[in-house]
C-alpha cells in the first residue's frame, strides 16, 4: 500500500508539468523532485525500531502513537464511524480514550448491539442514552419491533436530549414485514428532529392528520415510508416541506384522503 504512492504520484505530476509548464509553475514541482526521503526524514525523524521513550517530534514515525494526539473532536468523528460496540470499546484503549466515546457524535444501529432480543436491546439503548453528553446525534436506527414491544422506552429515547439534532432516524421494518400487526405508535416527538433530519425511515406506523403539516425538513434527503398509513395531504406537505429531498421510498404504504378510502399503493 505504501509502496505505490510516491513513484505514481510523481510520475503523474511530472507528466502534467511537461504538458502544461505554466499551469503548474516550476518552483513547486522542481523543488519536489529531490529525493523525497530526505525531506520526509528531516520533517519526521524516524525513531529506529521500537525505541521507547517520547517521540522526537509529534509527527514522528515508527512506534509513535499519532492517533492519540489528534484533537478530541476528530477522534470523536472517527469513533462515531465505528459500529456502536466497537465505538464504546475504544474506551478500553488507554486513558486518553476513556471519555471520548461518550462525547462523540452519537451513532447507534440496533443491529450492531448484542442479539439477545429486542427487549434486552431496548434496555441497553436506554442505558447508553443516559450516559451520553455528546454534541448533535448522528444516527439512530432501531427495529420497528421496538415500537411494538417497548413503546414507552422508544418514546423516552426520542425525547432524550442525547438525540438532539438527530440527522438520521430509522425504524426499520425488518422482520415486521410479514406481520399483520396493527399500526404501531410513532412517538409524538418524532418530528422534533425535522430541522436536522437528513434521512428518515418509518415503518408500520400510522401518521395521523395534523402531525406534519406545518413542518419543514430543510435537510431531508432520503425519506422511506414502509407499510405506513398517512393522509395524502400530510404526505404532500412533507414533500413540499423538503426542498432537497433526493430519494422517496413508499413501500406498501397507503396515502389516503380519509379513513383509508382510495388508498394509493406504491
Amino acid at each position: 500500500m505504501a509502496a505505490l504512492p510516491r513513484g505514481g504520484k510523481r510520475r503523474r505530476m511530472q507528466a502534467l508539468q511537461g504538458q502544461e509548464p505554466e499551469a503548474i509553475r516550476g518552483s513547486s514541482l522542481t523543488e519536489l523532485r529531490p529525493p523525497p526521503s530526505m525531506a520526509t526524514e528531516a520533517a519526521h525523524p524516524k525513531s529506529s525500531g521500537e525505541s521507547p521513550g517520547p517521540p522526537p517530534s509529534p509527527l514522528g514515525a515508527g512506534g509513535v502513537d499519532h492517533i492519540s494526539g489528534l484533537p478530541d473532536a476528530i477522534l470523536g468523528e472517527i469513533i462515531s464511524l465505528l459500529p456502536v460496540k466497537e465505538a464504546a470499546s475504544t474506551q478500553a484503549l488507554a486513558s486518553r480514550w476513556r471519555h471520548l466515546w461518550r462525547s462523540a457524535p452519537l451513532s447507534i444501529d440496533g443491529d450492531d448491539l448484542p442479539d439477545e432480543g429486542e427487549i434486552s436491546r431496548a434496555g441497553l439503548i436506554s442505558r447508553i442514552l443516559v450516559t451520553r453528553r455528546g454534541p448533535a446525534a448522528r444516527r439512530f436506527s432501531v427495529s420497528a419491533l421496538q415500537l411494538l414491544l417497548c413503546s414507552s422506552a422508544v418514546g423516552s429515547w426520542i425525547s432524550s436530549p442525547a438525540l438532539d439534532k438527530l440527522q438520521e432516524l430509522e425504524f426499520q421494518i425488518g422482520e415486521m414485514m410479514r406481520l399483520h400487526s396493527p399500526d404501531l405508535p410513532l412517538p409524538d416527538s418524532t418530528f422534533r428532529f425535522s430541522a436536522t433530519l437528513r434521512l428518515l425511515t418509518v415503518s408500520k406506523c400510522h401518521i395521523p392528520q395534523g402531525n406534519v403539516e406545518a413542518l419543514h425538513f430543510p435537510q431531508l434527503r432520503e425519506l422511506a415510508l414502509e407499510s405506513v398509513r398517512i393522509p395524502e395531504n400530510s404526505l404532500q406537505s412533507i414533500i413540499a416541506g423538503s426542498p432537497i429531498l433526493e430519494s422517496l421510498l413508499l413501500s406498501r404504504s397507503s396515502a389516503s384522503i380519509a379513513c383509508g378510502s382510495t388508498p394509493r399503493e406504491l
Binding site: 492517533i67 492519540s68 465505528l82 459500529p83 466497537e86 475504544t90 488507554a94 486518553r96
Partner: peptide, 29 residues
C-alpha cells in the same frame, strides 16, 4: 471526513488489543 473514514476503517473489526498494536497506543490503565 475522508481521512477519518480511512482511520475508522483501520480500526473496524479489531479488538482493543489489535487497535493498540496498529496505532502504537500505549495501554496506561
Amino acid at each position: 471526513d475522508v481521512t477519518c473514514h480511512k482511520i475508522s476503517e483501520m480500526m473496524k473489526g479489531k479488538s482493543p488489543d489489535q487497535i493498540r498494536e496498529v496505532f502504537n497506543i500505549k495501554n496506561d490503565y
